[in-house]
Nucleic acid binder design. Structure first.
Lengths: 197, 197, 197, 197
DNA sequence: GATGAATGAGCTTTCATTCAT
DNA sequence: AATGAATGAAAGCTCATTCAT
């Protein structure tokens, strides 16, 4: 129906706007009036779409997690070697850091840092499950293929995502001497070196 | 001087209190009255020691960075192998996560996440230099000793700190199945595997 | 006309719904969306029937006053003794407290308490005249019949309605040890005892 | 101590101001900025004295109830006949309606009408106990002295307070033809007539 | 140095009302 | 008649910071 899709489109606009602002200025330093102004709608109307500022942030993390999860899902389903999959994931992640830095910044600076905002509604890792799941699948398939050492999942996960997140952070701080994407292969090698069987 | 040292002691108390609160509740959810109450002094008097809430956070990150840097300095100066040094650093970091989790949480959740708070006064990595420098020294000596591959420093740094930070985060979220310290050796091996010559 | 009567029916629905909500939650805690939802119509459409929230409340008090007035009118017209009429009025009032508590609660908690809402449009006692008039008639006929003392009308009115309202209030607060209707005869006696010639 | 008493005095000022405004405009139509302006202090400072608007209203009802209770206590302790005590209570009540109408209006229009405001903190009749208790004492002593019929307390209470409240209400609406105090003796007689043994 | 009352701007959220469809 | 998205003013409340004492 026309009406429904228009409302959905509006929701999408709000999410994208809020995502950009939260990523740039942080959750607390972004005000509802900020979001209203940038969306071009009134403060009151925002509340016709989301019941609270927190609910907006929670919707955004689900949105980000789903986007990340979808691409990694595709990589998982491909017929590549584990080593090559790592390379693809790293390149994808770093590509995103260049093209849609808001997604990564939101993840690192809003979701990971402001626990209290996600406490009710995103308990545990629910809101981030689509992404987590795919990383899990990647790792398990690598082990099953005999390419990766069968170690504790969280140790592998911490390496993988901590490493990528750390680089994204340094890139965001503009202290890397090179372009982030130029690190991709070296880093993929480091990860493979650490996890391989 | 007596007076000076008493004032310094008070400053130290405030820093420790604020550190604990910021780490626990976040920068924005911690109020100046919260800090005053927990320190046992008045709100007004706090401003005789620090000119603003931001200045307190900046002082804290310098304090944390110095503490971390000192221990890593000692490890750097020891006559251990690079592999063993990695193990020591990992154990020290994870030990801190258990014993003084505020330090790590502050670093991860306040310093890394709230850019705007540290924008004026902690530009670049100034406030975190004591720690960064020692990690740099560790890496350069490892390379010079022929133990580590001579790759871009930031790539190595991102691996090391991203990995440890990621594990600390997962531990803080209480989603690790094992005790953090039980991961130490496995993780030290992973790091060494990734960086070795 | 068909159209007219349908519109009237709708108005009636809205009045009953709003009456129930205002009585239950109070004038200010009841929102237009609340009323719209419970009526099953849209917010906008409500404004095709009533120009404002205040106008709705005013319409309701006229409606309530008319309903009360009609029954008292019947009692006035009957051939009963004054003492028996009092008994009937008290029973009728307490019966209403059980069967349609909204009417009484609206009167006590919305009309009597929120002066500002009825200021423009219900000045003085206009909106409540149908009810007041019948009480007046009852009293005058009681005096004319020689059953009641010829005292100031308002003094008698205050006794009668204050007493009944007070009991209705206590009943609404659920602090009466007995069922409200069990008090009816005792109270009718008290009133007669106070007013009789 | 100076400080303590000054703070208490301020609290008193706020209570008196808020009482006047609530009585005049109602709880919801009175805003915190209204109270701040009339008190001559800032909005923020009000919250150094009371944690919320509701808490202010609750404090006020305790204050009003205590004042009323004290005077009735004195009347109870006097050596007057029951009939004379009734006369005194009625006169005192009507006198208050003239001199401090806010007290009575607050009781009738704010406390009795806005249940939700007093729900948490004034459950049952706690906040109004000092007043209720004295009315209870009056009634019990009247029965013991053989002056009053031994009927259900609530029936007698409803008569007494409903009657007085009703007259106060009519007076507040300015529809009484005579001065309220001119009704006092007539009304005291009515009450005595209704309750006497 | 120490206190904590005082300030006031700013926050999130609500809601009666309007109006394009 | 009917819808419900949109408006915007205003509400209650918070809190970093100041300042008279």
């Amino acid at each position: 129906m026309k009406k429904e899709s228009r409302k959905e489109a509006r929701r999408g606009q709000i999410i994208e706007t809020a995502l950009a602002l939260f990523a740039q200025k942080g959750f607390y330093a972004t005000t509802i009036p900020d979001i209203a102004e940038k969306t071009g709608m009134s403060v009151g109307n925002l509340y016709n779409y989301f019941p609270s500022k927190e609910a907006m942030a929670q919707e955004i993390i689900r949105y980000v997690s789903t986007m990340l999860g979808e691409t990694i899902h595709e990589i998982n389903e491909s017929a590549l070697t584990t080593k090559e999959k790592i390379r693809r994931i790293v390149r994808f992640y770093f590509g995103l850091c260049e093209e849609r830095p808001e997604l990564i910044e939101f993840f690192l600076r809003v979701y990971l840092a402001n626990r209290e905002v996600f406490h009710d509604g995103c308990e545990g890792m629910i809101c981030v499950a689509p992404f987590m799941t795919e990383i899990m699948v990647f790792f398990e398939e690598g082990v099953r293929a005999g390419d990766l050492r069968n170690q504790d999942f969280f140790s592998a996960f911490g390496l993988f995502m901590g490493y990528l997140g750390g680089m994204a952070f340094l890139n965001g701080e503009r202290i890397l001497p090179k372009n982030l994407e130029d690190y991709a292969d070296e880093i993929a090698d480091n990860i493979y070196g650490a996890l391989k069987a």
